[in-house]
């Protein structure tokens, strides 16, 4: 389960819309061990592509060092798919190198609505998880739960033939 403030989700969606039709990407950092995404860091897509994203290696070094100095870790790593569903591609799975992170995907293929889904990707196995959006500004006890999408909870790429 990913629990994330609505204000951060809104900022991620705004970033994805701003960069559309190119893919947008970034990180939400949080205190080590907290599993709480608190600091949104939009990153450059060095690939500037509609179908591929890649952190700039020097920007990544700077951001990863800053997180270390602040006792943070990448709690969420997000990117957008701009013409396809919010589901990890084979490329996404090949590159997923942060087993502790929530991989958040936003699809901006529809002009009016966004599809937002979150996944764990560990050793090549994709597991979808629910996203709980926290409305801190309204009422700390009022939370809404969503399970976006209809895919099976666990997909093993080796067996699925995708």
């Amino acid at each position: 389960m990913l629990s994330i403030d609505r204000s951060i989700v809104d900022a991620i969606v705004a970033h994805a819309r701003r960069d559309h039709p190119d893919e947008a990407c970034g990180v939400v950092a949080g205190p080590v061990g907290s599993d709480a995404p608190t600091r949104h860091i939009p990153m450059e897509n060095a690939a500037r592509s509609m179908t591929f994203y890649e952190f700039d290696s020097m920007e990544q070094l700077r951001v990863w060092r800053e997180m270390e100095d602040r006792d943070e870790e990448p709690v969420v790593i997000y990117h957008s798919h701009t013409a396809t569903e919010a589901y990890p591609s084979r490329t996404d799975v090949s590159f997923a190198g942060e087993p502790g992170a929530h991989y958040l995907l936003v699809s901006t293929r529809e002009p009016d609505t966004e599809e937002i889904r979150s996944f764990r990707i560990v050793d090549g196995v994709v597991t979808e998880e629910p996203v709980r959006i926290l409305d801190a500004g309204v009422d700390p006890h009022a939370v809404q739960s969503y399970m976006f999408g209809q895919s099976p909870a666990t997909v093993d790429y080796e067996c699925s033939g995708r």
Partner: peptide, 8 residues
């Protein structure tokens, strides 16, 4: 870890 991916 390099952070990369995408729909392609």
């Amino acid at each position: 870890p390099a952070v990369a991916g995408g729909a392609f």
